[in-house]
Write a protein that binds this DNA or RNA. Structure first.
Lengths: 167, 167
DNA sequence: CTGCCTATATAGAGGCATGATATAAAAGTA
DNA sequence: TACTTTTATATCATGCCTCTATATAGGCAG
């Protein structure tokens, strides 16, 4: 690892090193948070809404576990979302303790709106690139998508069963 | 990479559509935020530390402008970082109003630590993929990196001069 | 009924952002 | 010099978001 880096990537065939992949992902995280993030609701809020949209009504504790936050955090988040009219809470007839949370039409509309906004902003950014760069990006995306989707799936799975990770 | 023709997208040479690129980048962003984020300090805090590390001591208002937050936010952030020993504040001898913020050795160590953590977590995730998938991802990343870096630069520039974007 | 487990709520604290406003130093102007 | 304005930073009040610790209430086993 101590070899000094050369001036640039030698061959476009050459695979990226793990450090290069990490670097690229860090930059992407930067781009995402800085330029693709709506400020209207938090990341957890948006993610929770998306989950409710995809998977239907859920219990509070299930949502908390899925989103990786504590139950009190989820309680407060749901209270805020309810105040904003984005979700509703319904009592479970089979169990008086549980509250089922469901997304509202306004919630779905907000998700769609956010999605449109992100796509538009991204389109603007892509338009600032040369045709060659746009082409390179598009080709790379298509080549990487299958592998990347498996990576995302594995990451989600790894979150549920602790694995061997330290800090 | 072999061109074993499959039933999916017609040609692996074919570029992705703009929607596909947007979709892929969103998923990447989601992964980065969800699985590559340290919880110890905020994104703005880490980004500010990184900036101080790269560019040396800066004024509060300059930091606020660069990070896209208000001046009071930056004042509070710097107060917290100072309390944690990650930055120091020095008076400017030429201008009694300004405070120059500088990163400390502890601050640099924290940045290095975070970087190591991210790289390790990414290595673990990549290790869950088949060698073929790892290869595909690494090649795609190398191919996309130059264009992507220009994209990030343009995004940063667009932030400073308002451009034509609405919400 | 009693006692335990589970689902959710509440309280208190701190990080992180905002807008409005205060203070102090510098700079411009009469 | 004295007055005004601008600039750099701080403070205040508010709200979101998360945490830990704890309370309440329903379900269930004996």
């Amino acid at each position: 690892m101590e070899y000094t880096q050369q001036s640039g990537p030698r061959e476009s065939d050459a695979p990226a090193t793990r450090e290069e992949v990490a670097e690229a992902l860090e930059q992407l995280a930067f781009l995402a948070v800085r330029h693709l993030t709506n400020r209207d609701i938090s990341f957890t809020a948006a993610s929770t809404l998306g989950r409710l949209s995809r998977e239907g009504p859920s219990r509070l504790t299930a949502l908390a576990a899925d989103e990786g936050v504590t139950q009190p955090s989820m309680t407060q988040l749901i209270q805020r979302l309810e105040r904003q009219g984005l979700v509703t809470r319904v009592d479970d007839p089979h169990d008086g303790r549980v509250v089922l949370v469901a997304i509202t039409d306004d919630g779905r509309e907000l998700l769609a709106e956010r999605r449109r906004g992100r796509t538009n902003r991204l389109a603007e950014l892509l338009a600032t690139l040369s045709p060659e760069d746009q082409q390179a990006l598009a080709t790379a995306v298509r080549a990487a998508t299958p592998a990347f989707q498996r990576l995302v799936e594995n990451a989600a799975r790894a979150r549920k069963s602790p694995g061997s990770t330290a800090s």
